[in-house]
C-alpha cells in the first residue's frame, strides 16, 4: 500500500470522525475509540468507496475494526 494512499485514508477517517490526526494510529479501535460509532462507520465506508472508486464486500466492512485494518482492507481493493 502506498504512503500517499494512507495519508488520504487518514484524512478521510479523521474528517468523518471529527478528530485530530494526532489522535489516530493503527491500533485505534472501534471498540475503545468513542467517536467511532456505527453511523460514522457507515459514512466512512461511503467516503472511502467514493474516493477510491471501489465497493467493499460486507465481510470487509465488518472486519475494519481498527485503523490499521481499514488501511489494509482498502489496499486489498486498490492494488
Amino acid at each position: 500500500m502506498s504512503d500517499d494512499q494512507n495519508v488520504v485514508i487518514k484524512k478521510i477517517f479523521c474528517e468523518v470522525l471529527g478528530v485530530d490526526e494526532s489522535d489516530v494510529d493503527d491500533s485505534t479501535s472501534y471498540n475503545s475509540f468513542r467517536p467511532w460509532d456505527s453511523l460514522k462507520h457507515l459514512q466512512l465506508v461511503s467516503m472511502l468507496e467514493d474516493e477510491f472508486d471501489i465497493e467493499f464486500e460486507m465481510d470487509d466492512i465488518i472486519a475494519m475494526e481498527n485503523f490499521g485494518l481499514v488501511k489494509k482492507i482498502v489496499a486489498k481493493y486498490t492494488q
Binding site: 456505527s38 462507520h41 457507515l42 460486507m58 466492512i61 465488518i62
Partner: peptide, 9 residues
Amino acid sequence: NKIFLGSVI
C-alpha cells in the same frame, strides 16, 4: 453492537 449493521444477517 457490531461496527456494521449488516452483521445482523
